[in-house]
Amino acid sequence: MMNFGFKIAPSATINLDNVDMEKFTLLHEMEPDVYKCMACGSCSATCPAGRFTGMSVRKVILDLQRGREKEAVRMLKGCMLCGKCSMVCPRGINTRHLILSVCRIYNEDKQ
């Protein structure tokens, strides 16, 4: 094996074929409204933790569907459960309840 001083750059592409949706399906059963998110971003805009920790409910919902569960769970650690996001969500998603369900489903194996 030679050292050329460079390596094959990893691809940034999300391959949806390889995303395991098992947990998300479970989440959807518990929280049917999770699919109602239309990524407007008002939850993130109003989040008091977001500007310091990167917490964003919008990104959590997206990441969970793109195979980036670890990132999503890590992000949720910044949440203080203040409920501001529930107040602003135009789709009426109970985000506080959703966050707790995400923690329950995805934290089981201590990611």
Binding site: F4, G5, F6, K7, I8, A9, P10, S11
Partner: peptide, 14 residues
């Protein structure tokens, strides 16, 4: 640019 060759070869590899 040598620093970018990882992108070059990644395309070929793909």
């Amino acid at each position: 640019v040598k620093a970018n060759r990882g992108y070059s070869i990644a395309n070929t590899h793909k």
